[in-house]
């Protein structure tokens, strides 16, 4: 692979928050995308979201001016990943679901195809065991929104090969991203730090120590965080956050990672954050 966008064909499996982010990033950088999800309805919604995110990226000046946006195709079948040079899985943060998708896709694509997991917390080596060729899997933790934040966390599993690391560097350069490489662990660096912080912030609200705006206001105003932990949680999606915290808690036993009741209650009430219009904040009324 090279850093010429015309040498890349990306398949993205999972068209939720992150799949649409990554697809918009790639298309905007001239890399064509096949997006796979499980229903026509989800694919139609994802297509609309990607168009919206592409406009957002353009509005914010985050797309290279010299590249024509590439094509987006959608599909219900992982068989359509066969021709890709890279497959990125961005399905739900459930280890069994990811293992199934990685196992299936790795048997469809040609050997030598770059295989990326966008998992938040599941160790790469655990997922690599499901792949036909463990050495071809690498973790790339794209940030949300992927087209706005240029830095990504790259997770090299113990079995990830040098050739895979070279290929991922080429892809990231093509997409205008910079990666910092870390070793494998549950939650890697970012989410082993961020997720317990968010959970603790939610617990402070639950215990009545401070309301949502005050918790975020203190971390933004005093510690210089660009976005407070609870607003960040709403951006991530509280359903995904709970899944990720469960992954961390099951693998580390750290009680700071056991999702607090307030977080679970919001998810039970269908308040997933921005994607449903309400989470810790109500986005239907406020500028956000």
């Amino acid at each position: 692979m090279s850093t010429d966008p015309s040498d890349h064909r990306l398949a993205v499996v999972g068209g939720g928050v992150m799949g649409t982010n990554i697809a918009a990033l790639a298309i905007g950088h001239g890399v064509p995308v096949v997006l796979v999800d499980v229903s026509e309805e989800l694919l139609a919604q994802a297509e609309e979201t990607i168009a919206f995110k592409l406009r957002h990226a353009q509005l914010m000046g985050r797309l290279p001016a010299d590249r024509t946006p590439a094509k987006l195709l959608t599909s219900l079948s992982t068989a359509d990943t066969a021709d890709a040079t890279t497959v990125i899985e961005a399905v739900t943060e459930i280890a069994d679901t990811k293992a199934e998708v990685i196992g299936e896709v790795s048997r469809i694509v040609r050997p030598g195809t770059l295989l990326i997991s966008n998992t938040s917390c599941i160790p790469i080596d655990e997922l690599a065991s499901a792949a036909a060729r463990a050495e071809e899997l690498v973790g790339v933790h794209f940030m949300n929104p992927a087209y706005m934040i240029t830095m990504v966390e790259v997770i090299r599993g113990p079995r990830t090969s040098d050739a895979t690391m070279t290929a991922v560097n080429h892809l990231l350069e093509t997409l205008g991203r910079t990666g910092l490489v870390v070793n494998d662990a549950p939650g890697f660096v970012i989410n082993q730090l961020l997720h317990p912080l968010i959970n603790s912030a939610a617990r402070l609200v639950q215990d009545g120590v401070a309301p949502v705006e005050v918790v975020d206001g203190l971390l933004e105003g005093c510690l210089g965080h660009a976005t407070g932990p609870l607003r960040t949680a709403d951006l991530i999606g509280l359903d995904n956050l709970v899944d990720s915290l469960n992954v961390l808690y099951e693998r580390t036993g750290d009680t700071a990672c056991r999702p607090c009741d307030h977080l679970l209650d919001l998810v039970d009430a269908g308040k997933f954050g921005r994607k449903t219009g309400e989470g810790f904040y109500d986005y239907r009324k406020l500028a956000s």
Binding site: H56, L59, M60, A287, S288
Partner: peptide, 12 residues
């Protein structure tokens, strides 16, 4: 710093 970049699309 009153609004985030997300709000820009709301304005569009």
């Amino acid at each position: 710093g009153l609004v985030s970049s997300m709000f820009a699309m709301q304005l569009v």
